[in-house]
Amino acid sequence: MNGCLRFAVPLMNFFKIWLVVFVFGFFVSAAFAEEEVLEAEVEDITLCNAQEDIYFSCPLSGGKIVSVCALGNTNPNSGYVQYRYGVPEKIELVYPQSKIPPKGRFYVVNASEGSVSLNIIKFYNGKYTYLVSQAYRSFLTVLKSGELAVRKSCERGGYSVINRMALKGIESLPKSAEDFK
């Protein structure tokens, strides 16, 4: 009888430890699954409509979203491209207001240098220059009369990389000093 007890106690301890690990693992995996769902919901928020191509979109610090949306844009003279800024319930800025081809309005810049990759979609609106940039970290930059007015980094976002279709649909410009402000 004493020999059976010697094996029963370690076996009971093993089952207790296994139960604790199992319960802990269940709650931790459930927490991570919920976090992944929340991240996926944040990553998929865009100001583009379902039928539009998403050239760029990301949530910014502060809760706003910046999106560059297009439809039927296979070259600079076709379809349209629009910049949108705000939240889905209240878009604060749409450029241009009408859905017209991007020629002379939007530009793509490959501002890469050395091993640093930097792609930009930019446009001019009065004395403001807007740049959505994809680098190691994507961001929105707004220049006023050539001086930095706003720079906001993108939070995690599934569309914070400039879509390759933008390279075909928007005319390109060479890099300039304003691309690095």
Results as ranks from 00 to 15, higher is better:
residue 33 A to V: 12
residue 113 E to M: 12
residue 157 G to Q: 02
residue 172 S to E: 10
residue 83 Y to W: 05
residue 33 A to C: 06
residue 68 V to S: 00
residue 131 L to T: 05
residue 87 V to N: 06
residue 158 G to P: 02
residue 130 Y to K: 10
residue 29 S to P: 07
residue 117 S to F: 12
residue 111 A to H: 06
residue 98 S to W: 14
residue 77 N to R: 07
residue 2 N to E: 13
residue 180 F to K: 02
residue 44 D to M: 07
residue 50 A to Q: 15
residue 8 A to M: 13
residue 118 L to S: 10
residue 167 L to H: 12
residue 41 E to I: 05
residue 112 S to V: 04
residue 20 V to A: 09
residue 133 S to W: 07
residue 48 C to R: 04
residue 94 V to Y: 09
residue 105 R to E: 03
residue 70 A to D: 05
residue 54 I to P: 01
residue 4 C to P: 01
residue 12 M to E: 07
residue 85 Y to H: 11
residue 28 V to K: 08
residue 124 Y to M: 06
residue 119 N to P: 00
residue 163 N to Y: 08
residue 166 A to F: 03
residue 104 G to N: 08
residue 98 S to C: 01
residue 43 E to T: 04
residue 21 V to M: 13
residue 177 A to H: 03
residue 6 R to G: 05
residue 162 I to D: 00
residue 21 V to F: 14
residue 48 C to G: 01
residue 97 Q to P: 01
residue 3 G to Q: 11
residue 37 V to E: 15
residue 17 I to Q: 08
residue 37 V to N: 13
residue 50 A to P: 08
residue 12 M to I: 15
residue 58 C to Q: 04
residue 169 G to N: 05
residue 166 A to E: 02
residue 23 V to C: 06
residue 174 P to F: 10
residue 29 S to F: 13
residue 77 N to A: 08
residue 47 L to S: 04
residue 132 V to K: 04
residue 116 V to H: 11
residue 132 V to I: 09
residue 79 G to C: 06
residue 177 A to N: 06
residue 4 C to Q: 08
residue 156 R to Q: 14
residue 98 S to D: 14
residue 126 G to Q: 11
residue 40 A to F: 00
residue 164 R to K: 11
residue 57 S to T: 02
residue 84 R to E: 02
residue 133 S to H: 06
residue 138 S to L: 08
residue 139 F to M: 12
residue 37 V to S: 13
residue 23 V to K: 00
residue 149 A to I: 11
residue 70 A to T: 08
residue 34 E to K: 13
residue 35 E to P: 00
residue 170 I to V: 09
residue 13 N to F: 15
residue 7 F to V: 15
residue 181 K to W: 08
residue 137 R to S: 10
residue 120 I to P: 04
residue 170 I to S: 01
residue 135 A to Q: 13
residue 66 V to L: 04
